[in-house]
Simulated scan of single mutants.
Amino acid sequence: MEKILISSCLLGTPVRYDGTGVQLLHPQIMTWQQQKLIVPFCPEVAGGLPTPRDPAEISNDKVITNIGDDVTAEFKLGARKALQLCQQHNIRFALLKESSPSCGRNTIYDGSHSGTKVKGMGLTAALLTQHGIEVYSEQQMPALVQALA
């Protein structure tokens, strides 16, 4: 069986910007945990950002917090560390948190900090995809399960 990179927050780990996790309760996750196939990872924490932290969104190819701090370097470092981890463990599949400026697979926030979502990918999701790793969001669990079957 293949190992899967999974956003730590989806496993309930309190690493999101607001200090919470958003545990994905899906029977397949429990099975993968029992089989020791899950590699948990939070690119934002790996990139050096604290928990909790100011919310950030992608704007003009930069990641900017709601108070105007540029955290692009931390987000890029986290993305590179995610890629290195995938390469180290021969991971070809990732399950990442939708709409995150790191992990968003199909949507991200528009950069205005107004709660508006747009089509797009977070930095980590984009980098993994560029290197041939199949990225799924928590909303695409059935497709991921099928891809791994």
Rank of each mutant, 00 (worst) to 15 (best):
D69H: 15
R16D: 02
K117W: 04
G115E: 07
Q23D: 08
C42D: 03
C42G: 06
S137H: 01
Q130C: 10
I29M: 13
G47N: 00
A82H: 03
K76F: 08
M121F: 00
M1R: 14
Q34A: 15
N106C: 12
Y136A: 07
A143E: 15
P50F: 14
P142Y: 09
L123A: 13
L5H: 05
L37M: 15
D70Q: 10
S114A: 15
L148Y: 11
C42E: 05
F75R: 03
L127I: 09
F75N: 02
D70N: 14
S99Y: 05
Q34W: 06
E138Q: 10
K117G: 07
M1Y: 08
G111M: 10
V135F: 12
P101W: 08
A147V: 02
L123V: 10
L24W: 03
I4V: 14
S59G: 04
P101Y: 08
K117A: 12
K97C: 07
E134M: 10
A147C: 06
C42L: 09
Q87C: 04
L37Q: 15
P43S: 05
G115L: 04
A94R: 01
Q84L: 11
S99L: 04
N106R: 11
T31R: 15
T124R: 04
G120Q: 09
A126D: 13
L5M: 11
K3I: 02
D54F: 13
L85A: 11
A94H: 01
V45P: 00
G78W: 02
M1K: 11
S59E: 10
Q28P: 00
V118K: 13
P27M: 08
A56R: 01
P14N: 10
V63D: 00
P27D: 08
S99P: 01
S7Q: 05
A46M: 07
N106E: 10
I29F: 11
K62H: 14
T20Q: 15
H26Y: 02
D54K: 13
E98H: 05
S102C: 11
C42M: 06
G21E: 07
V39H: 06
G115Y: 06
A143I: 06
A94D: 01
T51G: 06
V15I: 13
C9F: 07
H131I: 06
G111P: 00
L128P: 06
R16K: 14
T65N: 01
E57Q: 09
I108D: 00
C103H: 06
Y136T: 05
P50W: 12
V22S: 15
T124V: 03
G120F: 03
I58Q: 09
M141A: 05
P14H: 11
G48H: 05
V71H: 08
F41N: 00
D18F: 02
E2I: 08
H131E: 13
K76C: 13
L37P: 01
D70R: 12
S100C: 10
L95T: 02
N66T: 11
Q34C: 10
L144C: 07
G78A: 04
D54W: 13
E44H: 05
